[in-house]
């Protein structure tokens, strides 16, 4: 597992795609925090609007809070790295190299998943790190209270979990179809599909817990009851576990 992480990060380090993706991430963050504007993929909640309009320049703390509502952009900035480290393995069938030299299929899956977790972590750290440092240098760092620290940590952990849940579905599709395109399309379509289903079947309350993308963006500003939070976490963990078990089962059965 550790060897795969070392190997795949060596591969990323020598890939132009990695630097282009990271450049886009930093450029996106800079364009938002330097102009003081937010872009979102879904609907924006009123509480964000109110908070944004509540006077004063964006200092590091304020910007970090506000930028939680743009975090779902990371889905599209994790996607290229996911394709580079895992997708290409399947589309070019280079999984044969490790599998034919003593790596079990379960170990291969877990290794690739651990690489993916590290990628998600790094992207989240780079995202919030850039926001905090750049706005801090430009407009000051603001007051970092304990309450803010705890709430941010909770929001970021929830966002991490939801990002992993979204990509668990993509990984499952990749392990079933061996098609990078199908995995990419799933990553983009799945959150939209859940949204559409939720709008159509408005009475089916539990569907909202699978709106991972929407929840990522509202993780800081939506005040969730403990029970609601538990349901969101359960839905994400359930998706990760079910997709993981299905992926490994299907991968184990396949003639490669």
């Amino acid at each position: 597992m550790f060897n795969m992480i070392r190997g795949d990060f060596y591969r990323l380090k020598h890939s132009k795609g990695f630097y282009i993706t990271e450049f886009i991430l930093i450029a996106l963050v800079l364009s938002s925090v330097l102009t003081g504007t937010l872009g979102t993929i879904g609907a924006r909640s009123d509480s964000i609007e109110e908070f944004q309009q509540a006077g004063g320049a964006w200092n590091a703390v304020k910007a970090t809070k506000l930028m939680t509502s743009m975090c779902s952009f990371l889905i599209y900035l994790i996607l290229p790295l996911f394709i580079m480290t895992t997708g290409f393995e399947f589309s070019r069938r280079s999984y044969k190299n490790p599998l034919s030299s003593g790596m079990t299929r379960l170990n291969y899956y877990l290794s690739k998943y651990s690489v993916f977790i590290v990628i998600v972590l790094l992207q989240v750290i780079l995202y919030y790190g850039t926001v905090y440092v750049v706005t801090g240098i430009k407009n000051g760092f603001g007051i970092f209270t304990l309450n803010f620290g705890i709430k941010m940590a909770q929001a970021i952990l929830l966002q991490l979990l939801l990002l992993l849940a979204i990509f668990s579905v993509s990984i499952l599709v990749l392990f079933i179809t061996f098609s990078t395109i199908s995995a990419v399309v799933t990553t983009i379509i799945f959150p939209l599909l859940v949204n559409i289903l939720h709008m159509i079947f408005i009475k089916v309350a539990w569907l909202k817990y699978f709106d991972f993308q929407g929840t990522i963006d509202s993780a800081y500003f939506t005040h969730l009851s403990t029970q609601n939070l538990e349901f969101y976490i359960l839905a994400a963990c359930g998706t990760i576990v079910v997709c993981g078990l299905l992926s490994t089962y299907i991968f184990n059965q396949k003639n490669l």
Partner: peptide, 26 residues
């Protein structure tokens, strides 16, 4: 060691980089 069907390696890497990559994985 095996080559099955056709040899596969990482397209974007040189020969040396590919071997470093696989030596890390193995």
């Amino acid at each position: 060691g095996s080559i099955i069907e056709s040899p596969v390696a990482v397209d974007q890497l040189t020969a040396r980089q590919n071997l470093i990559y696989y030596s890390k994985i193995h």
